[in-house]
Design a protein around this nucleic acid. Sequence first.
DNA 1: TCTTGACATGTTATCTTATAACATAGATAG
DNA 2: CTATCTATGTTATAAGATAACATGTCAAGA
Lengths: 177, 177
Amino acid sequence: MAQSRPHVHSDDCPGCHAAPEVAFARHDHSHCSGDVLARAEALANAQGARLTPVRRRVLEILLEEHRALGAYDVLQRLAAEGFGNQPPVAYRALDFLVENGLAHRIRRLNAFAACMHPGEAHAPAFLICRHCNHVAEAPAAAVRAALDGAAAEMGFLIERSNIEALGLCPACRGAGE
Amino acid sequence: MAQSRPHVHSDDCPGCHAAPEVAFARHDHSHCSGDVLARAEALANAQGARLTPVRRRVLEILLEEHRALGAYDVLQRLAAEGFGNQPPVAYRALDFLVENGLAHRIRRLNAFAACMHPGEAHAPAFLICRHCNHVAEAPAAAVRAALDGAAAEMGFLIERSNIEALGLCPACRGAGE
DNA sequence: TCTTGACATGTTATCTTATAACATAGATAG
DNA sequence: CTATCTATGTTATAAGATAACATGTCAAGA
């Protein structure tokens, strides 16, 4: 998973989003993890939110896996490391991360994934590969715009929304499945 | 809920979708329920799917409520009417309805809602009012197109997707909440 | 008519996901 | 230093979903 594959980083898009098709590709993951984590830390401070040990560790776990994890998966790893081993421990940390824009909830999977673009106010669409289970965030400004438009036509005011798609990522398409 | 409010029906859009803002408005619901149910029945036949008593009753229940119901809500009503009272009874019927395009699963609510446009091959966006809990289907062709485009940029092939929005419906906006 | 096979339903048991409620500890402001 | 707020730990339980097997029903082919 942590194969070193050089790729350009843009300022607003560390690690996995450097080039359009890179998010799903293999790349030096320790690099983008560290980058995202640093940005997350800065963001938390800026927002006056406290990235405590449990919360930070949960974020690290999500970043390490680079895929969506269930709350109980996270909990298991926390427990193994000496943190509390009851569900609320995991859920609270995960909720904190979601509320502070450091992680996303993937409803289709009942799971959570680290946000790869913390700080860029964004509401991405999630692309879930049904074969390798990886999740990528796709820029969804256009999608949101269309959705807002459709809602407005009906007089509906959108406050939050989730857009998730299931399918095949480039690698798994290439691999014949 | 079943206030008689005249509104024009279009052929492709019985009941609740006659005019843009009608889906959320009060209207003669027994009318669109019946209409949708008849269409659902025809559709099931055409597809060779069997709309058995339980399945039909579940669809009716969803139509009567005109909102998203949890599987256990449905189950409770089924049990009260002499059908089986174990979870699989409800889940199987609901799964059948979803697979045959007669109902939708709203993941954000862990719930199910009757499809208001059976037969029109469609993949709508769901607008969920956080105040009155009603769910409407918004035409989402443009949204899907944008989403497909965003995915294609990343080399991702979408097979299924769900688009859900939480907010305020026209009535609840008007009512000051 | 029988019977066989496919499909639907009923039932038991269990699993996964999520939260309520309360107790304890740690940080921060006054 | 102490009151208060926030975070964590813990117990218990609620809510959502499915696996596995038994029973029933119906219709096509022998």
